[in-house]
């Protein structure tokens, strides 16, 4: 069988699961969950260094950016200027050009502000960034992002951190069918089966944070997601059977005694 890669910009990934590194109880738990998930790419946020506590452990002590791909995000940014500032700083930190853009529009729903998102995508693309873009599940706007240079389209399944699962499979399918760049379902996935369904729809990958970090046993859930993504992908590649309204016996009817 041909090796099945997820190719985003210049990166080739074996795992179609990308995991977030927020909300864990400790860095040690984060590292264990990332390992159990098999993910090769993790999202990270850019924040002020705590200057009051010089000895406080930091993320890079637990997740080596040389071994795992850091995908800097713009979480918490509510306009284009804030997002651009964050990603330019991220690039300065060590040449990160592959980034995740999210420009939020509302504190309660954390839905993206698509006008600012499209504007930022355009600028970042011109500056040489490879931009993976968190977006609404509107196929027209998703197409706009692709036209403006997005390296991956990341539509939400439902609000960030809600765990509500895939609320609009039709729209996600339309985006998947029309996109020439990878489509990664981002935000809202609640449990492993949601990830399988997303993969069966034909998306190229999923990004999971809260569903793993907020599980009762995050490390076990990370493993569940690893398996679910592989299963869903294989199921998509295998092609499901056609649905029938009536039964079809699984055992031969010939030779019945």
């Amino acid at each position: 069988m041909k090796k099945d890669f997820l190719k985003i910009a210049h990166k080739k990934l074996n795992s179609r699961l990308i995991v977030g590194t927020g909300k864990y109880k400790s860095f040690s738990e984060t590292a264990k969950a990332v390992k159990a998930s098999g993910a090769e790419m993790v999202t990270v946020a850019v924040r002020r260094v705590n200057i009051l506590d010089k000895k406080k452990p930091i993320l890079t002590d637990y997740l080596n950016p040389k071994k795992i791909i850091y995908l800097p995000n713009t979480a918490g940014c509510f306009n284009s200027d804030e997002a651009l500032r964050t990603l330019r700083l991220a690039r300065e930190m060590g040449g990160w050009k592959l980034v995740k853009l999210e420009v939020l529009g509302d504190k309660k729903t954390l839905f993206p502000n698509m006008i600012e998102t499209i504007k930022s995508t355009k600028i970042l693309f011109k500056e040489g960034f490879k931009v993976m873009v968190y977006c609404s599940d509107d196929p027209i706007l998703a197409k706009k992002l692709e036209d403006n240079g997005a390296s991956a389209i990341m539509p939400l399944a439902s609000p960030i951190g809600s765990g509500l699962g895939l609320q609009n499979k039709i729209n996600l399918s339309l985006i998947i069918k029309q996109s020439k760049v990878p489509v990664i379902v981002d935000a809202g996935i609640g449990t492993a089966s949601d990830a399988s369904i997303a993969m069966e729809l034909g998306c190229d990958g999923v990004l999971i944070n809260s569903a793993i970090a907020n599980a009762q046993k995050p490390i076990l859930m990370a493993r569940a997601f690893k398996d679910a993504v592989i299963s869903g992908r294989n199921s998509f590649l295998a092609g499901r059977m056609i649905k029938n309204y009536f039964a079809s016996p699984s055992s031969p009817t010939k030779g019945i005694i």
């Binding site: 977030g20 860095f27 999202t43 990270v44 993320l59 890079t60 950016p65 850091y70 930190m93």
Partner: peptide, 10 residues
Amino acid sequence: LEIVHFIGGG
């Protein structure tokens, strides 16, 4: 002056 680094995030 702002000094930033990477922290856990989704």
